[in-house]
């Protein structure tokens, strides 16, 4: 059976005032893959993720999500709110003035999902991330790991086709990071969602990825499986 391509990044470039951040990158991602973009700070990995999300428009090249062109040569064809892409931000970006329940409900209301359906979906996702008892608590009252779960739940409750994660575990200690990585893997498998994960941490990349994309200075240096990339990096 041929795997369905869900994201196609075609010859995408991005520059700011003549400073090139992304240099003619092409990348195909298949449905259900766990792609980790690995690279040092400033290599353009977050920019690439934000281009897929729609927050940054590439100067040239095309981005196709699930067969639809979403950005084409500097033009935003489909706005971020309509791309059906979930994202967990580096700073989590939980809305401090809303309870955890409201944080999840906000997007569903925006999409005019019926109330019954909204409640069902939120309850289910709270259960999945094991945060049911914190439904009516505010994000500021949670620990770092719990906030992480809420951010993940907020992205997943929208049932996106792709989940983007921008170094979400960078601020956590090693033990908690390990636990949450297992959680992310479990949820990804359970929901059969495509994951694009950005990190500078090799260990994190190796434990999460089904495929790793190594980036440096705005270019893809190497793409491969965990063992291929391990071999590549040890040879550097």
């Amino acid at each position: 059976m041929v795997a369905k391509m869900i994201v196609k990044i075609d010859n995408v470039s991005k520059s700011y005032n003549k400073h090139s951040v992304i240099k003619a990158i092409s990348l195909d991602i298949e449905k259900g893959e766990r792609v980790v973009i690995l690279g040092p700070s400033g290599c353009g990995k977050t920019t690439l993720l934000r281009i897929v999300a729609g927050f940054i428009h590439p100067n040239q090249g095309k981005v196709i999500i699930d067969g639809n062109v979403v950005a084409d040569n500097g033009k935003c064809i489909i706005e971020p709110e309509n791309r059906q892409v979930g994202m967990v931000f580096q700073d989590l970006a939980l809305w401090p003035h809303m309870s955890n329940y409201k944080n999840l409900e906000f997007g569903l209301k925006a999409k005019k999902i019926p109330k019954m359906e909204t409640r069902k979906r939120i309850d289910e996702i709270f259960e999945k991330v094991q945060m049911t008892q914190f439904k009516n608590v505010y994000p500021g009252e949670l620990s770092g790991g719990q906030q992480q779960r809420i951010a993940l739940a907020r992205a997943l409750v929208m049932q996106p086709k792709i989940l983007l994660m921008d170094e979400p575990l960078s601020s956590l200690d090693a033990d908690l990071s390990l636990t949450l990585r297992k959680e992310i893997l479990r949820l990804q498998e359970e929901l059969a969602i495509t994951l694009i994960y950005v990190t500078h941490d090799r260990e994190e990349a190796f434990s999460l990825a089904s495929r790793i994309v190594v980036m440096e200075s705005g270019k893809i240096q190497k793409t491969g499986t965990v063992s291929e990339i391990t071999a590549y990096l040890s040879g550097l």
């Binding site: 709110e81 994202m87 906000f106 569903l108 999409k111 992205a155 929208m158």
Partner: peptide
Amino acid sequence: SMEEAAQNVGAGWFRRLSGI
């Protein structure tokens, strides 16, 4: 990112204004 997160879950400009 607070506003981007709202946009990411499907909120348009006016909903982002009033909600976030």
